[in-house]
């Protein structure tokens, strides 16, 4: 069965149209959850608003559970899904740089686009910044080449790296998420409210 487009069940011509529809849903949900506000996003790092953590983890776990149920019932073949490739050091160093960028700018690319759509000027500057960042990377690509293509481990999943059944991993992730939510609420009560 699924995924539908790669398996030719829905013709490839629909790809772009579905992309736009998915994008609309994505943007609508992000904006409605408050991800167009950089101060709300940054709140997760200072403990005054945990919306990012809650939305992000809920989405991740719902998606995980849903995908694996669909796989179990035969609607979707997990083996055919695109798995983000693992370039170990690239992932770590890129993540570290993005982490600093996140706190400094208060957005990530997806949320900044939502903020651009509702006219936040800081978000427009941020998106320009991202493009400059991409430009810098491309222009000085030889410098990053080793990092970018090195330590390639393949399109692996945690199932491959840890040798644990994916179902147990999902269960563990769900528990971690719930603990994180409880802790977040606990911390949120302690910390002085910030009006933004």
């Amino acid at each position: 069965m699924g995924p539908l487009i790669p398996n030719g069940i829905i013709p490839i011509e629909w790809d772009s149209i579905i992309a736009i529809l998915i994008g609309i849903a994505f943007g609508f949900i992000l904006e409605s959850s408050g991800f167009s506000s950089s101060r709300k996003l940054a709140g997760v790092f200072y403990g005054y608003d945990f919306a990012v953590l809650k939305v992000f983890f809920t989405a991740g776990i719902v998606a995980l559970i849903g995908i694996y149920y669909m796989d179990y019932l035969g609607f979707l073949d997990v083996a055919q899904l695109y798995v983000h490739p693992t370039y170990l050091w690239g992932a770590i160093i890129g993540g570290v740089i993005m982490g600093v960028g996140f706190v400094a700018g208060g957005f990530c690319p997806g949320t900044s686009l939502c903020a651009v759509a509702i006219g936040k000027i800081d978000a427009i500057i941020y998106v320009l910044g991202i493009m400059i960042g991409v430009f810098i990377f491309s222009e000085f690509y030889p410098l990053f080449d080793e990092l970018y293509t090195g330590s390639f481990l393949g399109n692996i999943t945690l199932v491959d790296s840890l040798g644990v059944s994916p179902y147990w991993l999902i269960f563990i992730f769900a528990i971690i998420a719930i603990i994180a939510f409880v802790v977040a609420d606990f911390v949120g009560k302690k910390i002085k409210k910030v009006f933004y």
Partner: peptide, 19 residues
């Protein structure tokens, strides 16, 4: 409501393990 939702969550996730 939150504990209930959390429980549903865990049951669903646990269901995958037990199926």
């Amino acid at each position: 409501r939150y504990p209930i939702i959390a429980a549903i969550f865990l049951i669903l996730a646990g269901g995958l393990v037990l199926l």
